[in-house]
Lab assay of single mutants.
Amino acid sequence: KELVLVLYDYQEKSPREVTVKKGDILTLLNSTNKDWWKVEVDDRQGFIPAAYLKKL
């Protein structure tokens, strides 16, 4: 499984997104879309802008 580091706080703006904090380490589920990556946060799955994440 691939992990990503959150570079900036992000507040979800729709039900398909998730809220994260800078410094969080998340499981990356899908990065095929270059703009929005799907991650897992506390048993929730959702999207975050790829620019907010860095692969570890």
Rank of each mutant, 00 (worst) to 15 (best):
D35A: 13
L28G: 00
L53P: 01
A50Y: 03
A50F: 03
A50K: 09
T27W: 15
L28D: 01
A50T: 07
L5G: 03
V4H: 01
K34Y: 08
T32H: 13
G23A: 03
V6P: 00
L28I: 05
L29T: 06
N30C: 09
W37N: 01
Y10R: 03
L26D: 00
R16Y: 14
K34P: 14
Y10M: 01
R44Y: 06
S31Y: 08
R44A: 06
V41Q: 09
Y8M: 14
P15T: 09
K38P: 01
P15Y: 09
L26F: 04
Y10P: 01
I25A: 02
A51G: 14
K1I: 15
W37K: 01
D35N: 15
V6E: 00
V6N: 00
V6L: 01
W36F: 08
Y52D: 02
A51Q: 10
W37P: 01
Y8T: 09
Y8R: 13
Y10N: 01
I48W: 01
K21H: 13
L3R: 10
E40Y: 06
D9L: 02
K55Q: 08
Y8V: 10
R16M: 15
I48V: 15
D35F: 15
K55L: 14
D42C: 10
K21A: 09
L28E: 01
K21C: 08
K38D: 03
N30G: 07
K34H: 14
L5R: 07
V6Y: 00
V18C: 07
G46W: 06
T27A: 11
A50Q: 07
E2A: 13
W37T: 02
V20M: 02
E40Q: 15
R16P: 06
A50N: 04
N30L: 11
V4S: 02
I48H: 00
E40S: 10
L3N: 06
L26N: 01
D43Q: 12
Q11W: 15
L5F: 07
S31W: 11
L28V: 06
L29A: 04
Q45H: 10
N30M: 09
N30V: 09
L29V: 13
K13T: 15
N30K: 07
I25S: 02
S31K: 07
T32I: 11
L7P: 00
D35Q: 12
K13V: 08
E2R: 11
R44M: 07
K21Y: 14
G23S: 03
T32N: 13
K55N: 06
T27I: 15
K54E: 11
L56T: 06
E12C: 10
P15A: 13
R16F: 14
V18E: 02
P15W: 08
K34Q: 12
T19I: 03
K22I: 05
T27S: 11
D24M: 15
P49A: 03
K55P: 13
V20A: 15
N30H: 07
G46N: 02
V20T: 04
T27Q: 14
V6R: 00
L5H: 04
V18P: 02
L26I: 14
L3A: 06
V20G: 05
D43S: 12
E40A: 11
V41G: 07
A51M: 15
P15D: 13
R16H: 13
F47K: 02
Y52A: 12
F47M: 08
S14I: 05
G23Y: 05
S31L: 04
G23T: 01
K1M: 13
D9V: 02
L26A: 09
F47Q: 04
Y10H: 04
L7S: 02
V18S: 02
G23R: 02
D24Q: 14
P15S: 13
V18T: 04
L29Q: 04
L5N: 02
N33H: 12
N33K: 07
F47L: 09
V39D: 00
K1C: 10
A51H: 15
L29P: 00
N33P: 05
T32R: 11
K13L: 09
K22S: 09
K21S: 11
E12A: 15
L29Y: 04
D35V: 14
L53D: 00
I25G: 00
K55F: 07
K54N: 06
L7T: 04
I48R: 01
V39Q: 00
I25H: 04
Y52M: 08
P49N: 04
V6T: 03
K38N: 07
S31M: 08
P15L: 09
E2L: 11
S31H: 09
V18Y: 03
T32W: 10
D42W: 10
D9H: 06
E2T: 13
R44F: 06
L7V: 07
P49L: 05
Y10C: 02
S31A: 14
K34V: 12
K1P: 15
K54Q: 15
S14H: 11
T27M: 12
L56E: 04
K22T: 07
K21L: 07
L28Y: 01
K54F: 12
